[in-house]
Design a protein around this nucleic acid. Structure first.
Lengths: 190, 190
DNA sequence: TAAATTCGAGGACATTTGTCCTTTTTGCTA
DNA sequence: TAGCAAAAAGGACAAATGTCCTCGAATTTA
């Protein structure tokens, strides 16, 4: 729980006592490689903080291909947000790329926290704002860079992901084909 | 204010009395075509609901080109969110594509509302969550569709914007060049 | 451990998109 | 309304990326 406490403290002022008070709402859980935290078609009842490991979020496009929309690494949050927030069927699957340890909270417990405490309303809002800013960055960056620029950025910003994820998943995350990624890797290695 | 009230009601349960109670915090303002709601380098002290008109958000990339990251139309919110939330210099400019009427709130007033009322904490969080979901959609779509698919989607989802904005701005919004957009328009018109 | 399967690299060619430029159209203003 | 400037269209060629394929290495499974 220590890393999660630090994460929360980076968002709002929070004493150890306050954290203890609410820590009962959070459960620790492990997820084996390739197993799922959320699945397309099912409603997602949990959000998670990733203590250790790596998760991949993907959806299926009109051509029935898996498109990776996100890699979530240690010390970050993950959830099928749309499904979790609206409590409707998920359009996303979230799968463990490697064995992963999570700290989770259920939808009902989180709503309780929101009811109970302005502190948690504030945490919830701030997290939503942050997720927005991260996504904005992702969008503006990925849509206006060439394939090579995108891969170089990923190498710099998410080197651990590049090592752990498959070529297929990295390519679809960057919105390019395997072939293009292969060419870029060749070029870089020269 | 009527459209803004309806907008809020679509987010949270809200009585007319409650809305009246807080409406003093909101100011109405018009923005002439080509003038700015936010500017790169300046801190953004306001967020806005667009009553009428159209705004374009852009930044300057490393090649010193304007990149349009967003078109915000009537009955939506706009802000240089990062700057507004963090009260730091804006990396974005927001410019009126046509004469536009806004309903605005200042950063300080919004913080006051958050202090004063869990209702507004809730509104703030829900809006942040929604903006996140919109941005997620934009990101995954733009990064995994061809130039033509992106333009066709825009035609369908934002026909008014396609009519009002310049070819240059539409192209940079879609992450393609003017030349490519010109080719697509030609092809469609056949 | 052998066979089967998956995964990544890369060849050959097609298609898409970008670059640089000129021409045409549109809209403004003097 | 004539003249100018800005915006949009589009020609010619280059570069980037995609498609379809094969091959060999790595990994899994029987």
């Amino acid at each position: 729980m220590e890393s999660f406490k630090l994460f929360l403290k980076s968002i709002v002022p929070l004493s150890d006592q306050e954290f203890e008070k609410y820590s009962q709402y959070f459960k620790t859980r492990t997820l084996a490689r390739n197993s799922y935290f959320a699945e397309i078609g099912k409603t997602s009842h949990e959000a998670a903080f990733i203590k250790k490991g790596l998760l991949r979020t993907y959806y299926i496009n009109e051509k029935s291909e898996e498109v990776t929309s996100c890699f979530c690494a240690e010390n970050n949050l993950t959830a099928s947000y749309k499904s979790f927030i609206s409590q409707q069927h998920s359009e996303l699957s979230i799968q463990a790329v490697e064995d992963t340890e999570l700290i989770t909270i259920s939808y009902n417990d989180l709503q309780n926290l929101y009811q109970k405490s302005p502190l948690w309303q504030n945490i919830g809002r701030t997290i939503a704002e942050r997720q927005y800013m991260v996504m904005e960055q992702y969008a503006s960056v990925l849509c206006n860079e060439t394939a090579k620029e995108k891969y170089m950025r990923m190498l710099k910003e998410q080197p651990a992901v590049v090592n752990k994820a498959s070529v297929n998943d990295i390519a679809s995350y960057l919105g390019i084909t395997r072939r293009t990624l292969s060419r870029i890797r060749k070029e870089i290695s020269l």
